[in-house]
Measured scan of single mutants.
Amino acid sequence: PKDEAKKKVKEAIKRGDEETAKRIAKKYNLDWDDAKREADEER
């Protein structure tokens, strides 16, 4: 599900692992900028 994928993307971003985050986002066709902004807001 997309929500689960987005959570994984945000967790990867918070760990500083943007490569993984981008790969997950691409795989699930998520909006990378959107997920990154959300992760930054939660930090």
Rank of each mutant, 00 (worst) to 15 (best):
P1G: 14
K2N: 12
K2P: 11
K2Y: 13
K2D: 11
K2Q: 13
D3F: 12
E4L: 12
E4I: 12
E4S: 09
E4P: 03
E4A: 11
E4G: 07
A5H: 08
A5L: 08
A5Y: 11
K6E: 05
K6R: 14
K6A: 08
K6F: 13
K6V: 11
K6N: 04
K7Q: 12
K7A: 11
K7I: 12
K8R: 14
K8D: 05
K8A: 13
V9G: 00
V9H: 01
V9Y: 05
V9I: 14
V9R: 00
V9D: 00
K10V: 14
K10W: 08
K10G: 04
K10T: 07
K10H: 10
K10I: 15
E11Q: 07
E11I: 04
E11Y: 00
E11D: 12
E11P: 00
E11A: 10
A12M: 11
A12N: 03
A12P: 00
A12C: 12
I13E: 01
I13S: 01
I13Y: 06
I13H: 01
I13Q: 02
I13K: 01
I13V: 03
K14W: 15
K14F: 12
K14Y: 11
K14I: 13
R15W: 05
R15P: 01
R15Q: 09
R15I: 08
R15A: 13
R15N: 12
R15D: 07
R15F: 06
R15Y: 06
R15C: 13
R15L: 09
G16T: 01
G16C: 12
G16R: 03
G16V: 01
G16S: 02
G16M: 03
D17T: 00
D17K: 02
E18M: 15
E18P: 06
E18A: 05
E18S: 06
E19K: 09
E19Y: 04
T20I: 08
T20S: 08
T20A: 12
T20E: 15
A21L: 01
A21W: 00
K22P: 00
K22Q: 07
K22V: 05
R23G: 05
R23K: 13
R23C: 14
R23W: 02
R23E: 12
R23Y: 03
R23I: 11
I24W: 02
I24T: 02
I24M: 08
A25M: 02
A25T: 03
A25I: 03
A25E: 03
A25R: 00
K26G: 05
K26A: 12
K26R: 10
K26D: 14
K26L: 10
K26N: 08
K26Q: 12
K27P: 00
K27Q: 14
K27R: 11
K27S: 07
Y28L: 06
Y28F: 10
N29G: 14
N29V: 02
N29K: 06
N29Y: 06
N29P: 15
N29R: 03
N29W: 05
N29S: 08
L30A: 03
L30Q: 02
D31M: 02
D31E: 06
D31G: 02
D31N: 10
D31T: 03
D31H: 03
D31Y: 02
W32V: 04
W32R: 00
W32K: 00
W32T: 01
D33R: 02
D33L: 09
D33A: 09
D33T: 08
D34C: 12
D34N: 10
D34H: 06
D34L: 10
D34Y: 05
D34Q: 13
D34M: 11
D34V: 11
A35G: 03
A35L: 15
A35P: 03
A35V: 15
K36A: 07
K36L: 14
K36Q: 09
K36P: 03
R37F: 08
R37P: 04
R37H: 08
R37W: 08
R37T: 06
R37M: 10
E38N: 05
E38V: 06
E38Y: 04
E38F: 06
E38G: 05
A39R: 03
A39S: 08
A39D: 06
D40Q: 10
D40M: 12
D40S: 10
D40G: 08
D40P: 04
D40I: 10
E41K: 11
E41V: 09
E41H: 09
E42F: 05
E42C: 12
E42H: 06
E42Y: 05
E42G: 06
E42Q: 08
E42R: 05
E42N: 07
R43Q: 14
R43E: 13
R43H: 11
R43T: 13
R43N: 12
R43P: 11
